[in-house]
Design a protein around this nucleic acid. Structure first.
Lengths: 139, 139
DNA sequence: TATTTGTTGATAATCATTTTCCATAAAAAA
DNA sequence: TTTTTTATGGAAAATGATTATCAACAAATA
């Protein structure tokens, strides 16, 4: 949250109430909200907020590396403002919940890949898909 | 190729020249072609082939688990008819080339995740992004 | 061969998300 | 305060890969 505000300031972006509200939603969200979800939460404080504003600000934060954008192939984007760097996810295919599991082995993999393939690896994406315990119980 | 034909037969799909041409492109492609790329290759043999036909057949093969569909968040789909099961990829962000690196540790990860999170993991997706040696040299 | 059923090809329609537009409002600078 | 610059809101438009449509065609079946 503080870091995000600083990043905005450093880049001459103005600190507006809407921006603060968006930052707050992102900082307080322990999940991985969608644009729509951020929109709904911001609207509880600022009922006139526009979807366009959310999109514009999410893009700004993403470009400032303050936000990890998780794009899925079905055009559903989700955001993580608490860990704005690549990390693995476990996605429930029923309720769309997303968790951050602890997996350490990835750094090693990247190094090994660089050696094996000659690629300069800059990013990665590791997602596991399945059904969460809650959704399993609901059957 | 043989396996794909069998799968089609077993499911009462007819073996048409266009289908065979698509299968051939998929089987012979060592890369990860896009629909557009399959289309272009099939057209060299069947100039009147329609894009719709490619889409329909790719969907059939995907549903028969004969084809791995790699959807990226920018709406670019790529296909692998040689290894129609989840496996890691290294993607060059410049030329869009895709390689299959050897990474074994994934099965263990899935097991560990099941234990940790209670999820029933059915699929995964591991992509590394970077620049391939050829594109690095071209700078 | 005649009949039935599945497939193709060409084009139009779709779809939801994301962008664009611009007048208004608000923040920073002078 | 006044001026300048940037952000917002509301609606409309774009986006563009994929899907639907359907007449014409081809493969399987009787």
């Amino acid at each position: 949250m503080r870091k995000m505000v600083d990043a905005l300031r450093e880049n001459q972006y103005r600190i507006t109430p809407q921006r603060l509200a968006i930052l707050k939603v992102l900082a307080e969200s322990k999940g991985h909200p969608s644009v729509e979800s951020i929109y709904e939460q911001v609207q509880t404080r600022f009922p006139t907020t526009s979807l366009a504003t959310i999109y514009k600000n999410v893009a700004v934060l993403r470009d400032l590396d303050q936000l990890l954008e998780l794009g899925f192939s079905d055009d559903s984007n989700r955001y993580d403002g608490n860990k704005p760097y690549d990390h693995p996810h476990v996605v429930c295919t029923v309720c769309r919940k997303i968790l951050d599991p602890d997996i350490s082995a990835l750094a090693d993999m990247t190094q090994e890949l660089t050696r094996e393939t000659g690629f300069t690896i800059t990013r990665h994406r590791l997602d596991f898909f399945g059904v969460c315990p809650e959704c399993q119980a609901r059957r």
